[in-house]
């Protein structure tokens, strides 16, 4: 259920998010390598050998075209990144008009309740973290809240988290795209046993989901 280092996107939304990571990771690394290179080049190229001071180097202290360029170019880069990121976020946060499954998720110190609208309700215990069962390829609406302090619902393989804040329920959609079982955990520090506030997510086929749902119907 866990074991590889890079999370593998397990929802449609996660694929969009992974692309954002890829773009920013690559662009960030490229910028870092160039600027690191410039820093190290300057230091080693013009390092004073030995103790002798020698004559002063040229005392220039400005270059207007250069300064305009290194303001304008980064500005264009971040504007482009912003436009990309704006679209990606809109994709990820879009709520379907009619979700197939709605789950009311309640976080509390230090466990979770997954209440499927129309049943069943999954209740975790300390020894046995609860499991959120989701159908592959369908749209799942999570309605998230907390009954005590701030928590956060995080599934690393979904590359996504949302805070569970008391008095402020929020909603997001998940479209599971890969069968499997994924680890979930509380990400917002919530007191004594925050570190152990785990759950799991199992993505199953639609038919398996319906079978599971009717078997657990109360």
């Amino acid at each position: 259920m866990h074991g590889q280092m890079w999370p593998s996107p397990a929802t449609a939304q996660a694929s969009v998010l992974a692309n954002d990571w890829l773009l920013f990771g690559t662009a960030g690394l490229a910028v870092a390598v160039i600027v690191w290179g410039l820093i190290l080049f300057s230091v080693f190229r013009w390092r004073r050998k030995g103790q002798t001071e020698g004559p002063l180097p040229p005392q220039f202290d400005s270059n207007n075209p250069l300064e305009i360029a290194w303001t304008a170019i980064p500005l264009l880069i971040v504007l482009a990144l912003f436009v990309y990121t704006y679209r990606a976020e809109a994709d990820v946060e879009r709520l379907a008009p009619k979700p197939d499954v709605i789950v009311d998720v309640n976080a509390y110190q230090w466990n979770w309740t997954f209440a499927y609208q129309g049943g069943p309700t999954v209740q975790g215990s300390f020894a046995d973290p609860p499991q959120l069962v989701l159908p592959l390829g369908e749209t799942v609406r999570i309605v998230l809240t907390s009954s005590d302090v701030d928590h956060a619902f995080w599934v690393p393989d979904f590359l996504f988290k949302r805070d569970a804040i008391p008095g402020h329920p929020t909603s997001f959609d998940l479209n599971p795209s890969k069968l499997g079982t994924y680890l979930g955990r509380c990400a917002e520090f919530c007191g004594f046993d925050h570190a152990l506030m785990d759950f799991s997510v199992r993505v199953v086929s639609s038919s398996d989901f319906n079978r599971w749902r009717s078997a657990h119907h109360t």
């Binding site: 990121t85 956060a152 990400a187 917002e188």
Partner: peptide
């Protein structure tokens, strides 16, 4: 970038 922060936040 919020899409990155959705994973990185509080990690």
């Amino acid at each position: 970038s919020p899409p990155i922060d959705f994973h990185a936040e509080d990690s």
